[in-house]
């Protein structure tokens, strides 16, 4: 065998060996951490849901009692709804939805609606809005998002479910109207959806 071929083969063998080692190691670590990671993510989600619906107010398994809804008026992609019940009766529904019309990309929201149609609360899960302007929707940056607590389709009246710039009651931020407008619109559409589909939502 000539020496060039030998060098090439040994180089290929080394590269192959390292690929196998790398893949093997990553696979092994993945298998041993998979369960733990899934459990951590469950806990994190449960924690953020319980921020909106206190742990004592329901008695079912929130994460297991979830359904996927595809409705054009809510969002382009299916929306996950977690249903809270107590003694079998509906307590609240938490929608994990997306406001698609933010200033830069999707704003992922958790919107909790109580059985009486009022909001238990709204939280921003992730967003890419401008730091210092649009990111005031984040609970860590300003208290704006807490202003939704307790509101419903009658309070304020449906016509005023808009930011002030559009003739509604919700504050926009200086220099950023698009972001709060997107959030208000998403929350309003969930409230309307909840109102007209409440029975179906909690069935089954």
């Amino acid at each position: 065998m000539n020496s060039t071929l030998k060098t090439m083969l040994s180089a290929a063998a080394i590269l192959g060996l390292f690929s196998l080692l790398g893949i093997g190691l990553v696979t092994w670590v993945h298998q041993h951490t998979e369960m733990r990671i899934a459990e951590n993510q469950r806990q994190t989600l449960l924690h953020s849901l319980q921020n909106l619906i206190p742990a004592g107010s329901y008695d079912n398994d929130l994460l297991a009692d979830a359904i996927q809804i595809s409705a054009a008026e809510l969002a382009a992609q299916p929306v996950t709804v977690y249903r809270a019940r107590r003694l079998g009766k509906p307590v609240a529904a938490v929608f994990s939805t997306v406001a698609p019309d933010g200033y830069s990309g999707d704003i992922r929201l958790l919107v909790a609606v109580k059985a009486d149609g009022s909001l238990a609360g709204v939280r921003v899960i992730s967003h890419k809005e401008t730091p210092g302007l649009g990111d005031l929707i984040d609970e860590n940056k300003s208290l704006w998002i807490l202003g939704f607590d307790g509101l419903s389709l009658d309070n304020p009246p449906l016509k005023q479910w808009k930011v002030k710039r559009d003739g509604g009651v919700f504050d926009q931020f200086t220099g950023a109207t698009v972001t709060p407008r997107a959030v208000v619109r998403a929350v309003r559409s969930i409230l309307s959806f909840f109102k007209s589909n409440q029975e179906k939502l909690f069935a089954g």
Binding site: A12, L15, V26, I37
Partner: peptide, 28 residues
């Protein structure tokens, strides 16, 4: 590691490294 394949091997090492750090941190 022979000279010819050192760069792909380093890339593999770093990628595997970072992935494992990511998984371990996520779990623990």
């Amino acid at each position: 590691v022979s000279h010819e394949v050192r760069l792909p091997v380093y890339v593999l090492v770093i990628a595997a490294n970072v992935t494992i750090i990511d998984l371990l941190m996520n779990a623990f």
